[in-house]
Design a protein around this nucleic acid. Structure first.
Lengths: 227, 227
DNA sequence: TTTTCTTTATAAAATCTTTATACAGCCGGG
DNA sequence: CCCGGCTGTATAAAGATTTTATAAAGAAAA
């Protein structure tokens, strides 16, 4: 009936069990992850239709996980957290969470909020595939094809390409890209950026010496052009 | 900056005042309605970008109002209610509400949830583009086009052009331009200015010898004309 | 082990600064 | 009137500096 896939990222096994039973009895397909790392990998390998994310993960800050996911994952993310402080809620929502429920939550309300989130997302059902002639990028499926052949990109390369593609046409500054891809502590490591831009060009440009898609704006940053 | 219009439907005048002050100080435009009927009419005559709806209206059930609105209104509706029962929340969400906050609410959280709701709804908005006939300047994307072709400008050239364009029609003195573009220590280097004005003209004017956009005001400075 | 990321090094390219030269208009004296 | 010096301007081009591209080696992670 429903068949939407929901990924539960939570370290408490009881919560995961409860959610699995609740969700499956409402015809959702449930997959699980118990750590931030596992959650990221699962999201990448089997992109779900919605993510339930606990902020209190053992191996990484939930807010950081959210930011990382939102770099490319566009479907709903609902936060489940014992933290009820306004600061946490505002931060999570501004980082791209669609909703925030404080534990313990009422299952009926959770289900209603899941329905609401999925409903709101239904309109843009198909994967956003960016097509630039010989180059095709499916942000959600995390697949990049050139001349119909899948190109293997490393995590960093993919994140960087996502940032550029999502802001197609705009010039992104070195600082911005470094902050979004590597983190705020790396805004002066322009060299990292150059290295990875060069690698991306070698992989996606027809002629890396005459880049068409990834254009450098000297002294400012880089820009992605689709055409 | 923001300019999204928010309609507040609530019968308590204190709540409306509070919301008006809170929202307006966050650059939203606020319109109000104190009854269900008034709310419906206002929504129809001036469709807002988001509705804050109180469930406890004097003249009609809030759930009924929500259903009526959702018959045609597609933008976000956030419920504000003193009712915290699961039944009410589930009903409201399933009737098409995007979110549900229990009164008394925290203003920071409300604002974050409003941002989240509007964010999810915003369609392909493109940047404000300054259009001067064959010349187009997108300040946000940092892109200058002439006859729809992207012109490559260096950092200094772009900064200088920005100063001129932002003060379109006004004469900017040598001193002013030098101070703004190069810094206060360069106000006597008129030569720099001449060099870069010449380069800009070569790039954006149809005929650099007969400049139309960048006009020199002898003895004073330069002026940018859009037409 | 293999892959990926970080770091270092160096050559090449782009940009900015600086200098040089040319032109046009203006004014006063011859 | 006309000519030379003056001022303000335009443009080219050489040099200096900054920024970028790329390879490759070492470190870390899978």
């Amino acid at each position: 009936m429903n068949n939407a896939t929901i990924l539960v990222i939570d370290d408490e096994v009881q919560i995961r069990k409860l959610l699995q039973i609740t969700l499956e009895s409402n015809d959702y397909k449930v997959i699980q992850a118990s750590t931030a790392k596992e959650g990221m990998i699962t999201t990448a390998s089997h992109p779900p239709d919605l993510i339930l994310l606990d902020l209190g993960l053992p191996d990484d800050s939930g807010h950081h996980v959210l930011q990382q996911l939102r770099a490319w994952y566009t479907k709903p993310i609902i936060i489940l957290s014992v933290q009820s402080s306004e600061e946490d809620i505002v931060k999570a929502l501004d980082n791209g969470a669609n909703d925030y429920l404080v534990k313990p939550f009422r299952t009926g309300e959770l289900l209603a909020r899941i329905r609401s989130a999925i409903r709101g997302n239904l309109s843009e059902e198909n994967d956003p595939v960016i097509d630039c002639g010989s180059l095709q990028i499916d942000l959600l499926a995390r697949i990049v094809k050139k001349n119909n052949e899948i190109i293997k990109l490393t995590t960093t390369e993919y994140t960087l390409l996502c940032m550029l593609v999502k802001n197609e046409g705009k010039v992104l500054t070195h600082h911005y890209l470094l902050r979004e891809v590597w983190g705020p502590g790396y805004i002066n490591q322009s060299q990292y950026l150059r290295v990875f831009i060069a690698q991306l060009r070698k992989k996606i440009e027809d002629d890396a010496n005459r880049p068409v898609h990834i254009v450098t704006e000297s002294g400012v940053g880089y820009r992605f052009t689709a055409t």
